[in-house]
Design a protein around this nucleic acid. Structure first.
Length: 214
DNA sequence: CCGGTAATAT
DNA sequence: CATATTACCG
């Protein structure tokens, strides 16, 4: 005589009125037109900063429960700052991020508006995870590089960016700055926007770069 | 309150 | 599986 309490029943749970995103909904001009022999222009925000934009059915949690902040996409720019900020202070250290780098300090040094300690903390964790896995022999493919393990930024026109702009994050109105050539995103069969790479949003590389040349 | 790690969600 | 956020703990 136990009424269905609350067990993780994998029953069906779907079919519901779609709700609009709670967070700011940026109009995304997605060319979903069936390019039938036309100029298919797939819009793919490959830029740096971009907030998670996914229309997921979010209809389950009742009550006021912050549905988890949108995933903050760590764009190369942000990562660059994240990895470069501490360099300004504790440079020369091959692992300043592994030594003494508190999210707060990093955030302060980053000077990125809209970045919270938690985000930095999270990113730091990820960074450490990768940093810990990397500084070691590789299973098979090994890149014959003589680079010191430090940090690396995407092959972009970075290098001491003389632009300490504060509008780096992608929260508020940000001047969409799309630079570089835009790679036409070709859908496999020209259907929906299914990207091949299963990266969430920002696809940047975790490469290594020698923060300091010997 | 801040920092780190685990758990959880996408 | 990778990545990001939340939660919990020190």
């Amino acid at each position: 005589m136990l009424p269905d309490f609350s067990l993780p029943s994998p029953a069906v749970k779907n079919a519901s009125c779609p709700i609009s995103a709670a967070t700011e909904d940026h109009s995304l001009s997605l060319s979903g037109s069936q390019g039938v022999g036309g100029a298919a222009a797939s819009a793919l925000a490959m830029a740096g900063t971009c907030l998670s934009l996914q229309v997921q059915q979010q209809q389950q949690q009742q009550q006021q429960q912050p549905p988890r902040k949108a995933r903050r996409c760590w764009s190369p720019e942000l990562h660059r700052r994240f990895v470069l900020a501490p360099t300004t202070r504790w440079r020369s250290s091959s692992n300043f991020l592994d030594v003494v780098a508190t999210p707060k300090q990093i955030r302060e040094l980053m000077q990125v508006d809209g970045l919270t300690n938690d985000e930095v903390k999270s990113h730091l964790q990820k960074y450490r995870l990768h940093a810990r896995k990397m500084p070691n022999s590789s299973p098979a493919v090994d890149q014959p590089d003589v680079v010191l393990r430090g940090l690396w930024v995407p092959p972009e026109n970075y290098t001491t960016s003389p632009q300490p702009s504060v509008s780096l994050s992608c929260s508020p109105q940000s001047p969409l700055q799309l630079a570089g050539s835009n790679l036409a995103v070709s859908a496999t069969a020209g259907d929906s926007c299914e990207e091949d790479g299963r990266s969430e949003c920002c696809n940047w590389t975790w490469g290594e770069v020698s923060a300091e040349h010997i």
